[in-house]
Simulated scan of single mutants.
Amino acid sequence: MTGPREHGPLPALLLALTVSTGLVDAVSYLALGHVFVANMTGNVVFFGFAVGGADGVSWSAALLALGCFGAGAFAGGRHGVARRIHRGLLLAMTCATQCVLVAVTAALAAFADPARRGTQLAMIALLAVAMGLQNAVVRRLAVPDLTTTVLTLTVAGLFADRTPNEVRLRRVASLLAMLAGALAGGLLLRHGPLAAPLWAAAAVLAACAVTADRLRRRDAAERWG
């Protein structure tokens, strides 16, 4: 029998991605009309609220986020499938792609009119594609308890399961990473321009891409590839 698969630096990199998720969802929910681009459970609920006539919720924004997230996930599910590639390279390629999408969204927020509905919908679409791509690739990386976008099962497992301290620590770290990203995003929105959390998220993604690519080139990278 083979032992548990090694993950090398992947857990730390995925925690950084979780921070970027908090930054991005802070923008989408607080500034783009109460819609999530990473948490699709929330959008399904929002869509139901909107169809039921609730005020302050847009069915079109929720539906757009769902569709674009699905498109990103579709692309992520096929990213690098034709040939087996190192998990570090897969993560680096994904983060680089996300960085471009988030940076374009930040540029829209900075140089277009973010109050226009068309600009908001374009931003939602770009961010949802980026988060769908991330979600699909993280599933393929298969690091336990680090989904980077959804914490419901993480919270349930934290309280329901009898697990080693290492597993509990990883789950708590995931929660704290999302909290840190959301807190930072909220503060940046309150005290700075709309684009600020997005530039921060793009910087985190760029750092993850560079770090993952460098680490996968090391000799020890074979064990977690």
Results as ranks from 00 to 15, higher is better:
T2I: 10
G3T: 13
R5C: 04
R5N: 05
L13F: 04
A16S: 06
L17I: 02
T18E: 01
V24K: 02
V24I: 15
A26M: 09
A26W: 07
L32F: 07
F36I: 00
V37S: 06
A38M: 00
A38G: 03
V44W: 00
F46E: 04
F47A: 11
V51I: 07
V51H: 00
G53W: 05
A54G: 03
V57M: 08
G67M: 13
G70I: 04
A71N: 05
A71Q: 07
G77L: 05
R78V: 05
R78Q: 14
I85F: 07
L91H: 11
L91S: 12
A92D: 04
A92N: 03
A92H: 12
T94N: 12
C95S: 15
C95I: 01
L101K: 08
A103Y: 09
A103G: 04
V104A: 08
V104C: 10
T105K: 07
A107E: 01
A110Q: 11
F111N: 03
P114S: 10
R116G: 14
I124H: 03
L127R: 04
A128N: 00
V129Y: 06
M131Y: 00
A142Y: 09
V143A: 03
V143K: 05
V143C: 03
T148D: 06
T148G: 09
V150C: 00
T152R: 00
L153P: 00
V155C: 02
F159W: 05
A160D: 15
V167S: 12
A180L: 14
L183D: 05
L189M: 12
L194T: 05
L194E: 02
L194F: 04
A195S: 12
A196S: 10
A203D: 02
V204C: 09
C208V: 14
C208R: 06
A209D: 02
T211G: 10
R216Y: 14
D219G: 14
G225K: 11
